[in-house]
């Protein structure tokens, strides 16, 4: 078991022929074993991409021809919000938006658009590395080899994070200490996004201020997943998603949760790379998040190098 994706997930890439890296990362996903079944690029329908996959003009055509259930979006920022809406309208169930730099008001409207589809459509991102169920399906830009597929004798951790490379750090540490990963979800660096920590924790999350799933969305999925033994949640300065996730964990998550928050040394008022990583009006500080998480019984690593060690302490394994 895993959350969101598995070996049977049929995936397309929106923006497969563009300059955003669609074909390159589609290659990476194919090499990993992901069931990539095609892509879209308006005006190029009927052709093949660099990997020999069929290219369609619309997502609707791609879904009808390939049975795609998930999409990986590399469409440039001015058109990416439209691409998300198009995927939802065409019946795609899981939308992974890798694109960085989507205007936040575009995401505000997009999130409202997605609300009409209820739970049947999940958005991860934007501005995120993607989702991976090791050994089965990789949708996104993460290096595959650092992960360990779930297997007998190895405990499995679910990882949910607002940051890409920091997720790799946690994956690598848990791999080196002999654990596997059930699923890893980058919810993204934007302020308005799809799934949140809680969606994933109950699943897994990206870095933008307005995004798809948030922590809570993901937490709920992980809690429900029989394969996942423990959860790593990686947050950063800005917003209050980690505080909300801490409250949720205290009430609803019985599995061990360990955490890390990036940005203790970040100066207020400066945007630290991610659109959502900014301390404003004294809110969104690392201290506030760490305090809330510790109060909820979550073990928070002081150093990003100690995420694995902290997981071992929390689980006795």
């Amino acid at each position: 078991m895993s959350i969101l994706v598995n070996k049977n997930t049929r995936v397309i890439c929106q923006g497969i022929t563009g300059s955003g890296g669609g074909a390159f990362h589609t290659r990476g996903c194919l090499d990993y074993g992901t069931l990539m079944v095609g892509g879209t690029s308006p005006g190029k329908g009927g052709s093949k991409d660099a990997n020999g996959l069929p290219v369609f003009d619309t997502v609707d055509q791609a879904v009808r021809a390939t049975g795609a259930q998930a999409t990986m979006i590399f469409v440039p920022p001015p058109f990416a919000a439209d691409a998300i809406c198009e995927a939802a309208a065409a019946g795609i169930k899981l939308i992974v938006a890798v694109t960085e730099g989507i205007p936040v008001l575009d995401m505000v409207k997009t999130k409202k658009f997605l609300a009409d589809f209820g739970d049947s459509v999940k958005l991860v991102g934007p501005n995120c590395p993607g989702v991976i169920t090791p050994g089965e399906c990789k949708i996104g830009i993460m290096p595959g080899y650092i992960h360990t597929p779930a297997q007998k004798g190895k405990r499995a951790v679910g990882i949910v994070s607002r940051s890409g490379t920091l997720t790799y750090e946690a994956v690598w540490q848990t791999t080196q200490m002999g654990w596997s990963q059930s699923t890893c979800v980058g919810i993204g660096g934007d302020p308005v996004k799809g799934m949140d920590f809680i969606d994933v924790l109950a699943l897994f999350i990206g870095g933008d201020p307005v995004k798809g799933m948030d922590f809570i969305d993901v937490l709920a999925l992980f809690q429900a997943d029989p394969l996942t033994d423990a959860i790593v949640m990686i947050g950063e300065i800005g917003g209050a998603a980690e505080e909300a996730a801490a409250t949720y964990i205290q009430k609803h998550v019985t599995k061990p949760v360990v955490g890390f928050i990036a940005g203790r040394t970040a100066p207020p008022g400066k945007r630290m790379g991610h659109a959502g990583a900014i301390i404003s009006g004294g809110e969104g500080t690392a201290e506030s998040k760490i305090t809330a998480m510790r109060a909820a019984g979550i073990r928070v690593a002081d150093s990003p190098a100690d995420i694995g060690k902290t997981l071992r302490e929390a689980t006795g394994g």
């Binding site: 920091l166 040394t265 790379g273 990583a277 190098a305």
Partner: peptide, 29 residues
């Protein structure tokens, strides 16, 4: 550093070990 989250975390770990970061720098993927 590559990646915004890891860049912030690198600043944090410098301070944790008694130094002070001179900058945030994400060179990107």
């Amino acid at each position: 550093v590559n990646g915004a989250g890891l860049a912030m975390a690198t600043m944090d770990v410098i301070q944790l070990h008694g130094g002070q970061p001179a900058n945030f720098l994400d060179v990107g993927g």
